[in-house]
């Protein structure tokens, strides 16, 4: 799905990530962890093509990021559901429209997808908030809405950046169960988090691989987690 081969990245200053090799394979469930500022969000952004690696090769669905046109990237993003760390909604549109946004921009027939949209909104427990505007939502509601938007296109890959950052333990368990359920449907999932409790909880439900960023490298964490 997404392959990183010996990539390095910096924002113009010192190297933030280096010698990162990683492959997100179909049906895999990954956690990405590490201290704040380690580069989790950066790595996620590299994975959906928002950033270009300084060196090394990154492939999205077999295509080299460097040779991809802007339209190719747009096309690839329709196969990747992203839950952004700060959600990113269009504040003038209702929650329901925001969830449907990926359908709108890819010119899908919204009527044909109406049932799907409704089911998904119910599934994340936002049925009663569907007509609210994003700024009116609580932190947890925002994150569920962001997850729903990431899933509406039934993507092959879901990249979730701190999806449980703003929610209590109970809600984070619910979100996790949603993601595990998706993984069982065959989706590739990567969750960036520094919530070790969440990772432990996941391990009892799914075969998860834990990647840890430390010292600019990405390593597979051992059984100590």
């Amino acid at each position: 799905m997404i392959e990183l081969e010996n990539i390095a990245y910096n924002y113009g200053g010192g190297e933030l990530l280096s010698e990162v090799s990683l492959e997100l394979s179909p049906g895999g469930f990954y956690f990405l962890t590490g201290p704040s500022g380690a580069g989790k969000t950066t790595l996620i952004k590299l994975c959906y093509g928002a950033l270009v690696p300084t060196t090394g090769q990154l492939k999205m669905f077999g295509q080299d990021r460097r040779t991809m046109e802007r339209d190719d990237i747009a096309q690839a993003r329709r196969r990747i559901g992203v839950v952004h760390q700060d959600c990113q909604f269009l504040n003038h549109l209702s929650v329901s429209d925001n969830i449907a946004l990926p359908l709108m921009v890819s010119n899908r027939d919204l009527l044909a997808e109406a049932v799907n949209l409704k089911e998904l909104t119910n599934w994340v427990g936002l049925a009663s908030r569907a007509q609210a505007l994003p700024p009116e939502l609580s932190g947890g509601e925002r994150q569920r809405a962001a997850l729903a938007r990431a899933l509406i296109m039934s993507p092959d890959v879901v990249l979730a950046d701190e999806p449980t950052g703003n929610v209590d333990w109970e809600m984070s368990q619910r979100l996790l169960r949603l993601l595990v359920e998706l993984n069982r449907m065959g989706k590739t999932i990567m969750i960036a988090t520094h919530d070790l409790g969440l990772i432990r909880a996941a391990k009892s439900q799914v075969q998860a691989r834990v990647l840890r960023i430390s010292n600019r490298r990405v390593q597979l964490a051992g059984a100590d987690l």
Partner: peptide
């Protein structure tokens, strides 16, 4: 700008 960022994030083409 933020609207444009969100649209790109969810897979909108430039022409759209």
């Amino acid at each position: 700008k933020q609207v444009i960022d969100v649209l790109r994030l969810v897979g909108a083409r430039d022409t759209y």
